[in-house]
């Protein structure tokens, strides 16, 4: 203990007198309380393990919650198997020269189409939505599909066909609508979907009795059409649209082709039209 005043001597006599008579001390109860508190405070770390469960597990709970939230978001953004199946069903059968697609064949042969044929109709509905054609599609689609099958002797419906399209039934077929240099199979697929849809839309000018003849099958095919329009409309490209117009012209539907061309120019005013459409 150092002296209170190194350079100040103070008054040793006063200090000695004061210390001689300074005996006041705290009561024993205060001493006991303070010492007990000191010991309890030292024991406190041992009781850390006895903290509330929330304090002990909050870190783990926070991590688990974060992980669960992340997984949930990831799963929500991941494509569901149901979506893949729906997408596969929406994808039309590519039309190969000389070979009638299964769905078309079924549509032309049997009024009540099986579920696989419904997919093609759904795409047709998509095309209808894209071009704003009234919903009179099934019968005209059938007719147009038959027309697309007709030039099987060598005249492809789509001169720009390139490469093989995804084959779902194992039948040899090419993707007539696939534009050269398509970025991906998915893009080709979208183009194919749009092409079929537009073809179906072009057939909307056909008579109503065929639609009536389709009967309940047509009604059954109407239902899934509500699903497809957005996908087909989005996937439809200018090239595919022009291909459809070209197909309409070749099929002899000049009025419909002109209407489609007018719609096309409204939708794509800056798109350079091929020579054949400038007249």
């Amino acid at each position: 203990m150092s002296e209170p005043q190194e350079d100040f001597q103070g008054d040793p006599q006063v200090s000695a007198l004061y210390r001689e008579h300074a005996h006041a001390e705290p009561p024993a109860t205060v001493d006991g309380y303070v010492l007990a508190a000191a010991r309890a405070a030292v024991r406190a770390p041992a009781s850390v393990a006895q903290r509330h469960w929330w304090q002990r597990w909050r870190t783990g709970l926070a991590l688990a919650t974060t992980l669960a939230l992340t997984l949930t978001l990831a799963l929500l953004h991941e494509r569901q198997p149901g979506d893949l199946q729906r997408e596969a069903a929406v994808t039309p059968q590519p039309v190969a020269p000389g070979v009638a697609p299964a769905s078309v064949a079924r549509d032309t042969a049997v009024p009540a189409a099986p579920p696989t044929a419904v997919a093609g109709d759904a795409v047709a509905a998509a095309g209808k939505a894209a071009v704003g054609v009234p919903p009179k599609l099934p019968a005209r689609e059938d007719r147009l599909a038959a027309q697309r099958v007709t030039p099987a002797a060598g005249e492809g419906v789509r001169p720009a066909a390139a490469g093989d399209a995804p084959r779902q039934d194992g039948s040899p077929a090419t993707a007539p609508e696939a534009a050269p240099g398509s970025a991906s199979p998915r893009a080709r697929e979208g183009s194919t979907v749009a092409g079929t849809a537009a073809t179906a839309a072009a057939a909307a000018a056909a008579s109503a009795e065929q639609e009536a003849a389709a009967g309940p099958a047509s009604a059954a095919r109407q239902q899934p059409r509500a699903v497809a329009p957005s996908r087909a409309g989005i996937a439809r490209s200018a090239d595919a649209w022009l291909d459809e117009i070209r197909a309409l012209r070749r099929a002899g539907h000049g009025a419909e082709a002109a209407k489609q061309l007018a719609d096309f120019r409204l939708a794509h005013p800056d798109y350079p039209l091929p020579e054949e459409f400038r007249q």
Binding site: E25, V34, R39, V42
Partner: peptide, 19 residues
């Protein structure tokens, strides 16, 4: 964590602090 050390410390300074 040595509680006995505090006891010694307390006994040294309890009187002066109290006064």
């Amino acid at each position: 964590g040595d509680a006995d050390a505090f006891t010694i410390l307390y006994r040294r300074h309890r009187g002066p602090l109290y006064r």
